[in-house]
Design a protein around this nucleic acid. Sequence first.
RNA 1: GGCGCCAUGGUGUAACUGGUUAACACGUCGCCCUCUCAAGGCGAAGAGUACGGGUUCGAUCCCCGUUGGCGCUACCA
Length: 491
Amino acid sequence: MPETPLTSPRVRFAPSPTGYLHVGGARTALFNWLFARHWGGTLILRIEDTDFERSSEAMVAGILEGMQWLGMDWDEGPFFQSQRLPLYRATADKLLAAGAAYPCFCTKEELEARRAEATAAGRPPMYDRRCRALAPAAAAARQAAGEAAAIRFAVPEGGATSFDDAVFGTVSFNNAELEDFVLLRSDGIPTYHLSVVADDVDMRLTHIIRGADHLSNTPKQVLQYQALGAPLPVFAHVPLILGPDKTRLSKRHGATSVISYKDLGIVPEAFRNFLALLGWTPGTDAAAGADGKTREVFLSDELIRLFSLAGISKSNSVFDNDKLAWFNTEYIRAYSPEQLLPLVQAEWAAAGFLPTLAPDSILATIALLQTRARSLKDFAGVFRAYFSDAFEFEPAAVAKFLKDPATPLLLVALGERLQAEPAFTEASTEATLRALAEERGIKAGILINGARVALTGQGVAPSLFAVMVALGRERTVDRLLAAPSIPVAMS
RNA sequence: GGCGCCAUGGUGUAACUGGUUAACACGUCGCCCUCUCAAGGCGAAGAGUACGGGUUCGAUCCCCGUUGGCGCUACCA
């Protein structure tokens, strides 16, 4: 279904640097990014660091690293709210002047005590609005005398506040449920409620795409837009991501930092694809393949082309590691060896591994292995023997296929023959091996399995003869001749 | 507790404005292929749409209630 085209929408990702870039935040960023890129709009990165207690520069760096890893760029920013304090002060003054806000002299301690009292008495623990009743002159005098005051928003006494959410439809709240929330703390630092509106207005944002945890905060913001006389943006609240136990995804569920998926050997685009499909669907029309089946792997710019707010679902979704693993294998296979190479090299660097294979052989070897890799980590782990002579033998594989002392000697014989052969192709090596097996009256499998271990250190590998060709004659022969010295664990 | 939101197989989703044997993907299981393991091919199990009432000739879809989950309820964001 064609949508109304949008002209230059402006959206933002506004993380709070009180932690790393987590999965939920990354998906919010992704939706904003996809939306901006789809419509040729502008993505603004804004760091909401007005909670000085919990914010840190290290976390800012972590968030930027996560964005970069996922390949999400932004057009403006990063802006830091901590550096925009005058704007919030000015916005509060506007609200004050409009009679939509008032100074409050209640201290934190008093408020806590009253809240406790109200809760104990079974009353809702909302602010009792006592400072709202203060005469403006009296309030001004107290402030002039140096008494610290917070600024609170004066929520209308009756009526309801509603807005149309692009995901949830019309959402309405009775104003009686909203308390006179604090805009500016008594130390002059804005709360989230004020800074978010001040910035969203100032940055001329047209769409607010954010987590559904903000749905209940939205009326407080709508009220401010109205008091400010500012046009309302389109809100689009995105349902949350849950862990396998269906509670909100958190550290208890293991990896929740986006960067930890890099460390797991996940291809960034695969992660992006996986994340995009968590709570969003391109719709059957757009995604249907020729066979009528719904495709889910959307390479390169396809996600951008397909993305639409209309496809965002309303219910929370569960993070499924199995599906992520599947996307990862799909991407590792879909990439060309050339595309994979830098990712593989990064793994080698991280592992301190130096390949000694010739560069053109490296690409061919990646091509040989990419259909069986589960993770980029494999290239610096179980696949080491393909790229360097510095590898280990897996004890279980040795014990299974080389325990018979006769086998290594057969492998030496095989090595000698291969050395003498004029050709060294998959067909020729196979013919040589099978001929040898027949002469010695043994099953070819003995040689094949034994050679696999001698050549790769593993009991599992691609077709043996393809492995031989990938390694080249020299390494193949060397490793076969060295078979008798492979340590067999005694057990 | 109050308010808000949500509810389709184990998981992610589909099912045009009510009419389908409730579809696809991941996962699971089986078979084939085979020098191992993946991949690949083929096939299977798995939900009658949280539950209960309506409305309707007919509800996954509309209405009400219940239950459950999640969110908000701070001078956090």
